[in-house]
Design a protein around this nucleic acid. Structure first.
Lengths: 182, 182
DNA sequence: GTCTATATCCGGATAGAC
DNA sequence: GTCTATCCGGATATAGAC
């Protein structure tokens, strides 16, 4: 399944076939179909695993900077910027949502839930960090991140990762009224 | 070709087949293949038409508010917000870029060029509007727009269109140092 | 030039041997 | 339970009739 996630992420869920996945994993189709009812099911479970990893990362923020929401917010920015650095091929969730144009695809439910949770998490974190307009700041951070996730290494020499970091800090400094670093 | 663009946008370039397009257009495959060498070629030409429409919209800004870059900037925000309102299924360019994971696909060249031009256009407009940090503001507006384009009607009752507009105005007010409406 | 019919291939899913 | 071989549908693209 780890190989499935990698290949889905690399080539897109519609760009890679069951056969290629099983071949890369050193097995065959039948064994895969013993564990997963269909390709859609495999996609859903891959996304759910990705979702769990996100939730764990949020818990880790609290663990790394206990009782210091400002530091947690800056750490979140750093994490997010690092996530989209390198040869980033876009967010698993966002890419899959685009590829599966059909709105009643089972994967869409997972994606929507993760996005909702992420937004709530950010808004609460911004509020705890004492930002003036936590909801607005959370929305801006979320949209900036989604935008940075989409625009890969295109315009400008500065990668989207560094751009996102710069702008995110600008957001919490100006919109949130939190001028100094934590 | 207009129907092709609509169907590509609605179902994704990989989610709709040649046959479905020709059927919807009231013709057949052979006539389509007389005009376009391949499906990829059809995709490229659809994107190029979309690009031309974007360029025309920018010219229209200058025509609507001649010599008033601030008004042009606010009008751009309004246009962008309106573009992503309604039952928005994502940006043609961004969606196609995600669907065609292969980086050396001919459509990628078109998409990259449009994005580069859009970024340059925005930066120049922000500079002419007298914003303090035009490059930063242009980057933020661009990322906000891309993010809003991706996040469809999900978290929150306020649609991404209204959210984008609110945040974009906030950006040019705080980051750009342009507090008042034009 | 426009359509019918088809060639060719690929991906998802299954049957059945071992 | 794991693999080989296969079915089936759909998609791109083409041949050839009119």
């Amino acid at each position: 399944m780890t190989t499935a996630r990698e290949m889905f992420h690399q080539h897109g869920v519609r760009g890679v076939g069951i056969e290629a996945i099983t071949e890369a994993a050193g097995t065959n189709k039948m064994t895969l179909y013993r564990h997963f009812a269909s390709k859609d099911d495999l996609i859903v479970e891959c996304l759910q695993r990705a979702a769990k990893e996100s939730y764990l990362k949020w818990d880790e923020l609290e663990r790394q900077h206990p009782g210091d929401p400002k530091a947690q917010l800056h750490a979140w920015i750093g994490n997010a910027a690092e996530c989209i650095s390198g040869d980033w091929r876009g967010c698993e969730m966002a890419n899959t949502a685009v590829e599966l144009a059909d709105d009643d695809h089972p994967a869409k439910r997972v994606i929507e839930e993760v996005k909702k949770n992420h937004r709530n998490f950010l808004a609460k974190l911004c509020a705890r960090a004492g930002l003036d307009q936590p909801e607005l700041a959370a929305d801006m951070l979320g949209l900036l991140l989604e935008g940075a996730r989409i625009s890969r290494q295109s315009e400008g020499q500065e990668g989207p990762s560094a751009r996102f970091k710069r702008m995110a800090e600008e957001v919490i400094a100006t919109v949130g009224g939190l001028g100094e670093k934590a």
